[in-house]
């Protein structure tokens, strides 16, 4: 092999490695994270009454691990639901959130809830209970129970303060099939009650948490999970996606153009300088 050929081989290899690095960087950035529910914007109406609508597939599911509620009494050391899959969509006016989880039996007392913080103050995920060194805010809870077949809009700021709002903005519908619950919650993105309801603006991340109750009864006829005995998650993130913003690509294209221009002028100047 001649020296020239060898150099050419090295040149190609280095160029290839460089391009691979750029592509690898892009792939890492595109990978989905499991810590946030992202609600893409859809045209047309939201599938508020249909947990099985085809349009749900346009939202990527985020899966959250669930724990038995061990944080405060009455505790439970084992809960039925261990994972919750969440999808969400919005149409610019309303938001729809689909919870999906495995539950071996359909029971009248099966229930699920979504929790948000209200306003700017941070709220503890366990019913917005008081914190010693931080002034907390209330939580907004969207609740659904199989036998009630409706959504309930609630607030809490500490244990024992759970209350149903006078104005109900949340709708919910559940569908059970093949050992799996699918429950859809819908609400306008914003409401006229910012003191009680979480307000969702597109593009911004807000906190979200979940709870699920298996309404199965044990041998003595007692509910297996009820009240504080449930499966819970701590805070994760939710975002109603803003309409796509392509400005980053425009700026990048402009920068590429400028860099090429800079190279062109530099090389031209160098060539002129050499010929002189």
């Amino acid at each position: 092999m001649t020296r020239g050929m060898e150099q050419m081989k090295w040149g190609r290899a280095i160029t290839g490695i460089g391009i691979l690095c750029v592509l690898a960087g892009a792939t890492v950035c595109l990978a989905q994270e499991g810590i946030a529910v992202r609600a893409p914007m859809v045209k047309g109406s939201l599938p508020a009454d249909d947990p099985n609508a085809a349009v749900w597939s346009s939202a990527a599911p985020a899966t959250f691990p669930m724990s038995p509620q061990v944080h405060w009494p009455n505790r439970i050391l084992e809960a039925t639901v261990r994972d919750l899959s969440v999808r969400a969509l919005h149409d610019g006016t309303n938001v729809a959130i689909l919870l999906e989880y495995v539950d071996p039996s359909e029971d009248p007392d099966d229930a699920a809830a979504i929790e948000f913080m209200v306003g700017d103050k941070k709220a503890h995920f366990a019913h917005g209970q008081p914190m010693a060194q931080v002034e907390g805010g209330p939580v907004n809870i969207w609740y659904w129970k199989n036998k009630d077949a409706k959504g309930v809009d609630m607030n809490a700021k500490g244990f024992g303060t759970l209350s149903v709002q006078p104005h109900q903005d949340v709708k919910a519908k559940g569908a059970y099939a093949n050992g799996t619950w699918k429950v859809v919650f819908t609400r306008p993105l914003t409401t006229g009650h910012p003191e009680e309801d979480t307000q969702i603006t597109t593009g911004g991340f807000i906190n979200i948490a979940f709870a699920v109750w298996d309404g199965k009864k044990d041998a003595s006829g007692e509910l297996k999970e009820k009240g504080s005995q449930k499966a819970v998650s701590s805070w994760w993130y939710f975002r109603a996606e803003a309409p796509p913003d392509y400005s980053g690509y425009y700026y990048a294209a402009l920068a590429v153009g400028l860099a090429f221009g800079f190279q062109f002028i530099l090389i031209r100047k160098l060539k002129k300088g050499q010929s002189v």
Binding site: G4, M5, Q7, M8, W10, G11, R12, I14, T15, G18, I19, V22, G25, A26, C29, G203, A242, D245, S247, G248, Y249, Y251, A252, A253, L254, A255, V256, G257, L258, A259, F260, Q263
Partner: peptide, 28 residues
């Protein structure tokens, strides 16, 4: 000579890296 290939690589890669950096610093 044969370093020409490497030269083209550098001249192509430099604007791409600049574009990539710009995208990341401006994109939401």
């Amino acid at each position: 000579g044969s370093l020409q290939v490497l030269r083209y690589g550098v001249l192509l890669l430099f604007p791409l890296i600049v574009g990539w950096q710009t995208y990341h610093s401006t994109a939401t």
